[in-house]
Design a protein around this nucleic acid. Sequence first.
DNA 1: CTTGACCTTCCCATGATGGGAACGCCTATC
DNA 2: GATAGGCGTTCCCATCATGGGAAGGTCAAG
Lengths: 141, 141
Amino acid sequence: MNIGEAAKASGVSAKMIRYYEATGLIPAAGRTGSGYRVYSATEVQMLRFIRRARDLGFPVEKIVALLALWRDRSRHSADVKRLAQEQIDGLEKKIKEMQAMMDTLQHLADACCGNDRPECPILVDLGGGPSNRSHEPRNAT
Amino acid sequence: MNIGEAAKASGVSAKMIRYYEATGLIPAAGRTGSGYRVYSATEVQMLRFIRRARDLGFPVEKIVALLALWRDRSRHSADVKRLAQEQIDGLEKKIKEMQAMMDTLQHLADACCGNDRPECPILVDLGGGPSNRSHEPRNAT
DNA sequence: CTTGACCTTCCCATGATGGGAACGCCTATC
DNA sequence: GATAGGCGTTCCCATCATGGGAAGGTCAAG
């Protein structure tokens, strides 16, 4: 199977397959006499594994560990679960950060008339005072 | 004011201040005879504006527009609000994506014993079939 | 044999940020 | 005035995963 076919079959672009090989995430594929990479069903399955893990937000670095566990028949599922939990925790943290941004922005946008007048609480906040963003009570000086 | 002082006063690192200047986000700062950049309170305020906008997740590209509106006394607040709303929408989209990832992962992690046995539904899912991830009902074959 | 689709490698760009090297400047202390 | 160390300057490199594109080789169908 050529790299293009492997790409279609796995959902990983040919470009990325080469990249994964170059960075050592996957072993170097076999080659035909003329230098074309050749892929077996096993390798396509590995690529699909990677694809799915990426879709769940795992960074490539973590996928190294996941692949190792995948191949290890004497793995402990606890190790897999731990990796998953770390990923969950990371996602949760980022979600919370973005949610906080969104809440602040929504708050500001709600206060903005959004008409043809220049007054705008959004800009006032951005350009404004020390750091008294949003709703937090600040100690009077 | 030196770049270091401006950095402290604005919350933007000296490195980033130079970067913003190089990319044209901010105008080139004045220089002393010996080549040191010099910053006024106005410029520090602009840096703080940028800092805050970044904290709300605005990409630098959007901040260009925000700064332009900030400076434009005949702006329409509707334009500002629109930018904010776009940012809100973008954040919401990313949050939803990450939430979906997290839900899937949580679902899988919940199904994983997390002990010293190798069986692991997380790995089964990643390595598994066509694409029957998560809870969706799939048509029996 | 030609053509077009595919493969190869290599370089560049993204976006925002940090690290570090090599070198110049400024100020306080002796 | 000399010196130290704390700043400043520029330039290059790295991140992280991905895509774009160029230049050139290969393969299969007509």
